[in-house]
Design a protein around this nucleic acid. Structure first.
Length: 630
RNA sequence: GCUAACGUAGCUCAGCUGGUAGAGCAACGCAUUCGUAAUGCGUAGGUCGUGGGUUCAAGUCCCAUCGUUAGCUCCA
């Protein structure tokens, strides 16, 4: 068995946050029916689960080989929520197969086979594997270090494995085990290799834990941004437009523009200058940048006026990144050291031809808007500017109440040739990033092979409801593009020097950010981001006029308020508002008209009672400026 | 791109082994004028993703294609 011990990376608490009221309230509600919530540890947190899941995957492999003697075993590690096992088998597994396999597993468990550890020499392991003709195991053996251990399920089946395991298959509870899905997976994770059949499963100590695990998965799907985006009418996809190309409704656009304005504001405070650049450019531009050579498979095909032009590679392409464009603006004039740092910023929409199987909701699309900026700095300024960028990113996350993220130093894979630039320059850039995060005393982990082709990055990683990880914010140090575009500035001494570039995007992309935000907030956007902030609900037809008046007053001071004139009963109006997750409801009837007030009900805290209009406005303005709750 | 599953009214879904489509919600109309999560009655809405094929007959079977989803690979 190869790598089962995935290194655990702590999810860091980046900043101190006050948990939003709404979050607390909805969490409390969800767990109402359970006095003592069932704990569901991750595998890495529980030695017991490690043993259970490890053994379960072996039991599954044994069952599979009994039912399908042609299936060859490969690897079967635990994952944080279960386990999987990859088989090389001609026919893919069907849903029905999973049921049959599960039945066979129950039989094995009921036999209470002892799990026996055996230590063998490399030669012995080799000859035993050859005897049962398992070529993948042989390959795994090559990468193993002594001692080589085998685990036997009594004398009926064995596997190369480091353990640990439970003592007997009888220690497993069949009712706490579920086989979940089948998928293709490449041997050793390389798409040039044989595609194997992977079975995913999960196993727990008790049936109650399994039930809770399934319940939480269902709960998670309710906050899936694809579902909520549809329910709340934020964005859509159209088959006629194309896959991975989201369309933003008026409501979704409000969220986008609010985020844009917020960041633009922060950037202005920090000396950024806005620029605008086109969506397409000559192929030549991307030849100089290196995109055409190193990033071409991620780009939409070239458009050319004629076949000849196409053959001569004289055409245009959609931009996959904004950097070459901003570089042109820098190069427009001879720059002095006095002009630096120069910070050019743009909400630049880029197009990348992602493989069809990669697309999903807003988290992976083919056209998306990067809150992009390129900082041109002198080598001396690099460190300080880098800190400033990280500070901006953390400020942004704090404002958005995003706290569950990891910081990743994305370095190049030293064994790959997909990068531009010399070893020396890469070392320099990577060291600069490492130094910055150490100085900032941030928790981080390093990942080889995650760098951009032109430079290393500091990335901020978030999770979606399915616990998949996505990169949002990023800072990149780049010595390569300045070189390729021959960027210069005149130094104090009057000679020409080469600037360093910092590429950075706190959001990463508006699309992915909003996808993650929808899930973080479970659709309950804070007041400042909510597309519809206040809905005014008249208790009867007679009060529609008053409701409209109040809505107009709120609109006049820039608050997104709408009067509900549908004429339904109050209960229905409230229900509709709640379902649309509108943060503030204002109920108006006879009492309110008389007192010239609004009866406030918020999603987060319920009924707040009658408040005068002035106070309502004051509190909403406060919420808008400070991103606080109503 | 690969492996698999799925695609029926705006939404959520039913439609068994083939006999030309059904529910709830939403929408619309009428009545109801109502105080903190669903008022009642009625109406309308689908060439069952698309294109072929098998069949007397296809939502149902076969093939292709587009799209969605999970996983792999790849990346904001």
């Amino acid at each position: 068995m190869g790598r089962h011990c995935t290194e655990q990376i702590p999810w860091i608490d980046g900043i101190n946050f006050v948990q939003s009221q709404g979050e607390k309230a909805s969490m409390a509600q969800a767990n109402d029916d359970q006095l003592e919530p069932i704990k569901l540890p991750k595998t890495s947190e529980s030695d017991t689960l490690k043993r259970i899941r490890h053994t379960t995957s072996h039991v599954m492999a044994m069952a599979v080989q009994k039912l399908f003697p042609d299936a060859q075993v490969t690897i079967g590690p635990w994952t944080e929520n279960g386990f999987y096992y990859d088989f090389d088998k001609e026919e893919p597994f069907t849903e029905q197969d999973l049921k049959t396999i599960k039945k066979e597993m129950v039989k094995i468990i009921k036999k209470k086979l002892p799990v026996i550890r055996e230590e063998v020499s490399r030669a012995e392991a080799e000859s035993r594997i050859k005897a049962i003709n398992e070529p993948y195991k042989l390959e795994i053996l090559e990468g193993l270090e002594a001692p080589i251990t085998l685990y036997h399920l009594e004398d009926q089946w064995w596997d190369l494995c480091a353990g640990p395991h439970v003592e007997s298959t009888g220690d497993l509870n069949p009712k706490a085990i579920a086989l979940e899905s089948v998928a293709g997976a490449y041997w050793r994770g390389d798409e040039n290799n044989q595609q194997l059949q992977r079975i995913y499963g999960t196993a727990w100590e008790t049936p109650e834990q399994l039930k809770e695990y399934k319940r939480r998965k269902e709960e998670a799907l309710k906050r899936d941004h694809r579902k909520l985006g549809k329910d709340l009418g934020l964005f859509l996809f159209s088959d006629q437009v194309g896959p991975g190309l989201p369309l933003w409704t008026p409501k979704g656009t409000l969220i986008r523009s609010t985020l844009e304005n917020f960041l633009r504001n922060e950037q202005t405070k920090r000396g950024y200058q806005g620029v605008v650049t086109p969506h397409i450019a000559r192929v030549d531009l991307f030849k100089v940048s290196g995109h055409w050579q190193n990033y071409r498979e991620d780009m939409f095909p070239m458009m050319a006026e004629s076949e000849e032009a196409k053959l001569a590679e004289q055409g245009f392409v959609m931009k996959p990144m904004n950097c070459p464009f901003h570089i042109q603006i820098y190069k427009d004039q001879l720059r002095s050291y006095r002009d630096l740092p120069m910070r050019l910023a743009e909400f630049g929409t880029v197009y990348r031809y992602e493989q069809s199987g990669e697309l999903g909701g807003l988290t992976r699309v083919r056209g998306f808007t990067v809150d992009d900026s390129h900082l041109f700095v002198t080598p001396d300024q690099l460190e300080e500017e880098f800190f400033n960028v990280v500070d901006l990113i953390l400020t942004v996350f704090k404002s958005l109440q995003l706290k569950n993220f990891k910081a990743r130093l994305s370095f190049r894979d030293p064994n790959s040739d997909k990068y531009i630039g010399s070893d020396e320059v890469w070392e320099k850039a990577q060291n600069a990033i490492r130094k910055a995060v150490t100085t900032l005393d941030m928790e981080y982990f390093e990942a080889e092979g995650e760098a951009a082709f032109y430079g290393p990055k500091l990335d901020f990683i978030f999770q979606d409801v399915l616990e998949r990880e996505w990169q949002l914010g990023t800072v990149q140090v780049d010595y390569n593009l300045p070189e390729r575009f021959e960027l210069e500035y005149v130094s104090e001494d009057g000679d020409r020097q080469r600037p360093v570039m910092i590429h950075r995007a706190p959001f990463g992309s508006l699309e992915r950010l909003i996808g993650i935000l929808i899930e973080e907030y479970a659709g309950d956007f804070p007041v400042w981001l909510a597309p519809e902030q206040v809905r005014i609900l008249p208790v009867g037809e007679d009060f529609v006029a008053y409701a409209k008046e109040q809505a107009a007053k709120l609109q006049a001071v820039g608050i997104r308020a709408i009067a509900d004139t549908s004429g339904e009963r109050l209960g229905k109006l409230i229900r509709n508002s709640e379902k649309q997750k509108i943060p503030v409801m204002a109920i108006v009837g006879e009492k309110e008209v008389e007192a010239q007030s609004l009866s406030i009900r918020t999603r987060a805290s319920g009924e707040l009672g009658a408040l005068p209009m002035d106070e309502v406005i004051a509190r909403l303005v406060e919420a808008n400026t400070n991103h606080s709750n109503f």
